[in-house]
Write a protein that binds this DNA or RNA. Sequence first.
RNA 1: AAAGUAAGUCGGGCAACCGCCGGUGCGGCGUGGGGACGCUGCACGGGAGGAAAGUCCGAGCUCCACAGGGCAGGGUGCCGGAUAACGUCCGGCGGGAGCGAUCCUAGGGAAAGUGCCACAGAAAUGCAGACCGCCGAUGGCGGCCGGCAUCCGCCGGCCGCACAGGCAAGGGUGCAACGGUGCGGUAAGAGCGCACCAGCAGCCUGGAGACAGGCUGGCUAGGUAAACCCCACCCGGAGCAAGACCAGGUAGGAGUGCAUAUGUGGUGGCCCGCCACGCACUCGGGUAGGUCGCUUGAGCCGGCUGGCAACAGUCGGCCUAGAUAGAUGGUUGCCACUCCAUAUCGUGCGAGGCCGUGGUUCCGCUUGUUGGAACAGGCCGUUUGCAGCACGCGGAGGACAGAACUCGGCUUACAGACUUGCUUUCUCU
RNA 2: UGGGGAGUAGCCAAGCGGUAAGGCAACGGACUUUGACUCCGUCAUGCGUAGGUUCGAGUCCUACCUCCCCAG
Length: 112
Amino acid sequence: MKARHRLKDNRDFRRVFQRGKSVATGRLVLYWHENRLTTFRAGFSISKKIGKAVVRNRLKRLLRACFLELGPKLENTPVDFVVVCRQGSADASYHELLSDLRKLLRRAKFMV
RNA sequence: AAAGUAAGUCGGGCAACCGCCGGUGCGGCGUGGGGACGCUGCACGGGAGGAAAGUCCGAGCUCCACAGGGCAGGGUGCCGGAUAACGUCCGGCGGGAGCGAUCCUAGGGAAAGUGCCACAGAAAUGCAGACCGCCGAUGGCGGCCGGCAUCCGCCGGCCGCACAGGCAAGGGUGCAACGGUGCGGUAAGAGCGCACCAGCAGCCUGGAGACAGGCUGGCUAGGUAAACCCCACCCGGAGCAAGACCAGGUAGGAGUGCAUAUGUGGUGGCCCGCCACGCACUCGGGUAGGUCGCUUGAGCCGGCUGGCAACAGUCGGCCUAGAUAGAUGGUUGCCACUCCAUAUCGUGCGAGGCCGUGGUUCCGCUUGUUGGAACAGGCCGUUUGCAGCACGCGGAGGACAGAACUCGGCUUACAGACUUGCUUUCUCU
RNA sequence: UGGGGAGUAGCCAAGCGGUAAGGCAACGGACUUUGACUCCGUCAUGCGUAGGUUCGAGUCCUACCUCCCCAG
């Protein structure tokens, strides 16, 4: 995941949470809101309640790998995404997270 | 061989593809007079731990007076050493556990003072106290006998009472009752006397010291300081969001109050001292970007020397992560490791393998619906050898855990693998 | 990074080093035709965990676990 696809600023996070829309599965919640750029950005929010630092870092890496896989299809959608991990996602594998994320993006009409 | 004990090492490996971070080199585009800066591409080599964790101690570093005086507060607490320092480490002493190797140990002071010691008990610290009990020597009362005396009475002996009184041995209470055991002693007793033991004080010897050993003395002093306290030693405060620089900016404005030092701030609980100076509140306005600090350090590895050791010295070699919504990853394959299945098949080894309190003997302890060893016994197999073992073919598993200024420790978590020393028991030669 | 606090029955909680108060809930009983109200009784195997000091620990000390709050 390149640096231009990362959502970093706290203001952007707040805007996505407050003005954006959301869909969810048992493991993940996806928030999104349109931005003024030419491509997408993605950020992750993983609470301390999910697990220790090792668990949280692993989830972020897995989610970044998922966006690396899905990136080419979203290159021309100017939207900010925020993925929130729910409590059951601590032991999820890469393939489980990838299929969940596909499902959410399809429900939000960004993918077919 | 089994059981145990101490110290230490490791914490899966290789490959392919797709990615991330920072470094070096070579390019492309844009801005700019240029040094440069921003975006971007390729190549090369680097990229988590033994605990990176908890943040419990100690330091470096930075700023506040290069950290000053006093009070308050906190910490440490047998002795000696190591160290930059420590509450850490090493060696020893005392005490405790274990057959032993070895392990554990906040271990100064209770004859400086104060507090507390519930319930029970007579009494809980005043060299106190007398419930049951022991005694009745001494004094008292009563009785009997004897002597003296004319009488009042006096003297002596014996017996009784338990009134005065003596006692703390025995019982009982309690975690603890003012040393313990024995002999003597006594009316009964008591360190009252003596012997030994424990404890205390003084002296001598050994040791660097904690302490150990011995002699002498007077006979006795409860526990608690992780209760206050006393003694000795140590500690100034904050923390990399420290701090420095760049851009921007606290500008400028309006109102109110206090004030020229007994004020406000730096400064932390307080006072002194030092330094700087108008300050506080309200309205209105504005910000939370970048660079450095940032990894060469009490550094790591190996050899030698000194030391019992912690460690120190010296020589040679090495450079080994620096992110900032926070890099060190994802997918797949193969190989090792552990466990489970091995029905069927292949290769090799191969004469034994498995069960065994539902019997006998012995051993151990948690002493009982208990565990282990040997034997009896049972099942399978043994010339054409698939009973069993190893490999191949199948499946599952791989812990604890993620650097955030850097070190030295401590504590806690941890699948599994390996090495070495030592102890006890058994067997064989 | 620094600082502060809490953990006691299912819930809310009090508790000088000396028998773990009290309320709600639950359960049993009485009252009632039945229920509610009321009354009586029962309920901690040890006070987050593990060690230690003490004759004795919820309380004191040490280490650890979990949760909450505050400042920048």
